[in-house]
């Protein structure tokens, strides 16, 4: 029994190291300045924050973060607003075509994004949004909106029927029921769904890569992917790792903080076979 426990602990330890090591290594790398980068050592002999300073001085990384924040916040707010109403309709009202609609919504979230790229490109250009944050808000809706609709629909379904009926007896119409009875109860659901949608928008790469052109219009993932140094052939790995750490630490913090909520949000709908 003792031996099995030790073996088990080793397996767990192995998984933890496997999961955490790459990020830890990124941190270590980000603290290496100059030629220290090119020696493999577990901890830099002379830790330096030079890379962190550089991404904000030499690169428009502050601006990139702001772009990502604005695009993700706007698309999350928009998605949640649209999704709450839609979720009430899909979750609580019986009507013909409801199953088909849910299927379509799910289908859209499964779309390969490259399949809408040319059509969206045309739309973005037509709306004059090219190289602007607006193009990202518009294109991100394609995955945040179906996701929020889907998850909020499952949450809406769980709300007690009698509560809605009590409100109906009290004279509340559907809009009042959604906004004044259900919405205040959905705080946790909205937070979890919003957070997941935010992360998805924050991490998006393909649309951001395609619809932005200049360095200061880029979002964080594009900036990190395309970050270049003094010469074209020399990637500034120290800076790339510093930038990676900067954008990942808050995400990891949020995810660990909202662990349980996120797990329930991820699995809502998906696993009810």
């Amino acid at each position: 029994m003792g031996l099995r426990r030790i073996a088990f602990a080793l397996v767990v330890l192995g998984i933890v190291v496997w999961a955490v090591f790459p990020f830890a290594w990124a941190i270590v790398t980000s603290l290496k300045a100059g030629s220290a980068l090119f020696t493999v050592e577990a901890w830099p002999s002379q830790p330096s924050l030079a890379n962190y300073a550089a991404i904000f001085k030499e690169q428009p990384f502050g601006r990139n973060i702001l772009n990502s924040l604005m695009a993700a916040s706007a698309v999350v707010a928009l998605s949640l607003g649209l999704a709450v109403l839609a979720a009430y309709a899909l979750g609580r009202v019986r009507f013909r075509g409801r199953g088909l609609l849910l299927f379509v919504v799910l289908g859209v979230s499964m779309f390969p994004q490259v399949a809408v790229l040319s059509g969206l490109f045309e739309l973005v250009r037509w709306l004059g949004l090219y190289n602007r944050i607006g193009s990202l808000v518009l294109s991100y809706l394609i995955f945040t909106l179906p996701f929020t609709v889907w998850v909020l629909t499952t949450f809406m379904r769980e709300l007690p029927k009698e509560l809605e009926e009590a409100a109906m007896v009290d004279g509340a119409g559907p809009f009042v029921i959604v906004t004044r009875v259900f919405l205040p109860l959905m705080g946790p659901a909205l937070a979890a769904t919003g957070l997941l949608a935010f992360i998805a928008a924050w991490n998006e790469f393909l649309f951001a890569l395609t619809f932005t052109l200049t360095d200061d219009a880029r979002t964080v993932p594009v900036a990190i992917a395309l970050m270049s140094g003094a010469s074209q052939y020399e990637l500034p790995w120290g800076q790339i790792m510093a930038a990676s750490v900067v954008v990942t630490v808050p995400l990891i913090g949020l995810v660990l903080l909202f662990q349980r909520r996120i797990v329930s949000g991820l699995t809502a709908g998906a696993v009810k076979g």
Binding site: I15, V16, P22, A26, P221, V222, I224, A225, S244
Partner: peptide, 16 residues
């Protein structure tokens, strides 16, 4: 620990 890889943006994990 296993939530960490999930939280890291794909681009960042590719770079790492």
């Amino acid at each position: 620990a296993v939530l960490i890889p999930w939280a890291i943006p794909t681009v960042v994990s590719a770079q790492m």
